[in-house]
Design a protein around this nucleic acid. Structure first.
Lengths: 300, 300
DNA sequence: CAACCTGATAGGCAAGGCCTATCGGGATGG
DNA sequence: CCATCCCGATAGGCCTTGCCTATCAGGTTG
């Protein structure tokens, strides 16, 4: 029971002539004769009444031919859809992004991505690292932008750019007097994000445990944290791309003595079949951001 | 591009497991692996992401799978329809019948045909011999009941029963005095049907050209002819099965001296693929009518 | 570390799709 | 009336391909 046989059937029904139908199908006339006879045997139904003058579909054939046409049309639809889908750089691309990166990075890369990969339909999804990894595992995301290393063979990752951290200080803070701030000097009054944000762990690792509000404040977003800093409740580390936003809030920024920072990576399942799409996305983001993060930091 | 491949695809999508899908399809697991990989190459699209833990459809696959389901469903519909159609004794059977036979024969055979061939959907079509043959040629009829021989190899025919003619006389006609009427005696005032009715030619052949109204009367139906006879305008020959109707109109019937009659045949295209259905129909009609026509004539 | 599970791969067999060449039988035409 | 043509069926052979069993590779589990 081959699909071609159905095409043969339609051709013979259309032309009423084995020879011409065979020509239209690109096969020889005996092929059509044999295949159609086989089809008739398999279906247990005579499909055509052969006559010296003409080949006429039987009434049974006419009852079937609608379904045959529909089946062939569906298969053609499959082929057409596959042709559209066969470009790995086209179609949906569900990209997870961590919250401390999304609002600052997305506006920068959306246009370049659309320009470089016009057929790629980017669908950003903002969540914390572990959630993003779970969604990657569940095939609910195609790739994710993270700021942590991912080990194991389950995922493949591509470093895109290094993003330096900056010390974020209230305008009246004593450390604003310095050109460069040492990470350890922030430990006294550093504020951190809630559990689950990789920036929280990175900040604590660089500065040490906060003495003041660190234990009680559970800022769910960098935006909240910046407001707290701007209001003078403490200091924090911010990623370079957030520099502009922080300054707009009146926060004073300073480079860090040990140049602490993070590496933004694109991560996807090792078995992800559209590796080409992932790498292309990574390429565009990397090209746009390499240097930009550092420049943003230096503009302080 | 084989249909089975689509079934394999659906099975793997359903089970998320090559081994179980293979079992469901009744093939080995390597078969599925190979065939699906081929399908992926042919479509140019990765359909599944293989992982040690799970086999997950790609987003491309999810876009295609609706069409795949539809295509497979259509093919299944073809198979199901073919199973229903594969009985040659089932389905429409378009049966042509000449007008001098139809109103008398049909009421007798309709019930027996339905009883003997309950799945056969009889569609009677009343027309004159030549028109019926044209419609047979055009595949617009499956078979026809005629009262003439059909020569050539184009058609195959099966004699069903012999139908004697009877002399039909007005009540006051001189010939009513005889027990048996000679065909030639009717010649003087015999009335015949219009051109195209085989009964016209058969009557003229038996009795000779009509002297009286024969030239001007163009009765389109046996019913008209009988009314004319009943009204005393002339005589005619009627087929045996019309005896009851004629007597109800007050017409006097007499057997013919030379037992002139006609043979009713079932005729179909020699290439007609449902020969079995035609022969079965002929069998039922023959069984019902053999003897009946003669009995009707003798009851006069 | 051994056993097991799962999908991929290799090799071989048999079915079957397709080809060319030819047949058979009816229509056509000089 | 015979030669020719047309058209579908048939025969024989080639080669693809679908399927099998056996095995591999890599990961998980007891």
């Amino acid at each position: 029971m081959n699909l071609k046989d159905f095409r043969y059937l339609l051709a013979v029904a259309e032309y009423g002539h084995f020879g011409r139908a065979a020509q239209a199908c690109g096969v020889s006339q005996p092929t059509l004769s044999v295949q159609l006879r086989k089809l008739e045997e398999q279906l247990g139904v005579a499909l055509f009444e052969r006559d010296r003058k003409a080949v006429v579909p039987t009434s049974a054939c006419e009852r079937l031919i609608g379904h045959v046409r529909a089946a062939v049309a569906e298969v053609d639809a499959i082929l057409a859809a596959a042709r559209d889908l066969c470009d790995p750089l086209a179609g949906r691309f569900r990209l997870g992004i961590i919250p401390t990166l999304a609002p600052y990075l997305l506006p920068l890369v959306f246009a370049p991505l659309h320009e470089a990969l016009p057929t790629l339909l980017l669908e950003p999804w903002e969540d914390q690292t572990l959630t993003l990894l779970d969604r990657l595992r569940a095939h609910e995301l195609d790739a994710a932008l993270l700021a942590t290393e991912v080990d194991g063979s389950e995922f493949t990752s591509q470093p895109l750019f290094d993003e330096p951290f900056l010390a974020a200080l209230p305008p009246e803070h004593p450390l604003t007097a310095r050109e460069v701030v040492a990470e350890a000097d922030l430990a006294q009054d550093v504020l951190v994000l809630a559990d689950g944000h990789c920036l929280r762990e990175q900040t604590l690792a660089a500065c040490g445990q906060s003495g003041a509000l660190g234990g009680t404040l559970r800022a769910a977003s960098l935006s909240t944290l910046l407001s707290m800093v701007a209001a003078g409740y403490g200091t924090t580390l911010i990623p370079g791309l957030a520099a502009g936003t922080a300054q707009d809030m009146g926060i004073v920024l300073r480079p860090l003595h040990e140049c602490t920072g993070r590496t933004v990576r694109l991560v996807w399942r090792s078995s992800f079949p559209r590796r080409a799409a992932a790498e292309a996305v990574g390429q565009v983001i990397g090209d746009r951001l390499r240097g930009f993060a550092k420049a943003a930091a230096h503009r302080v």
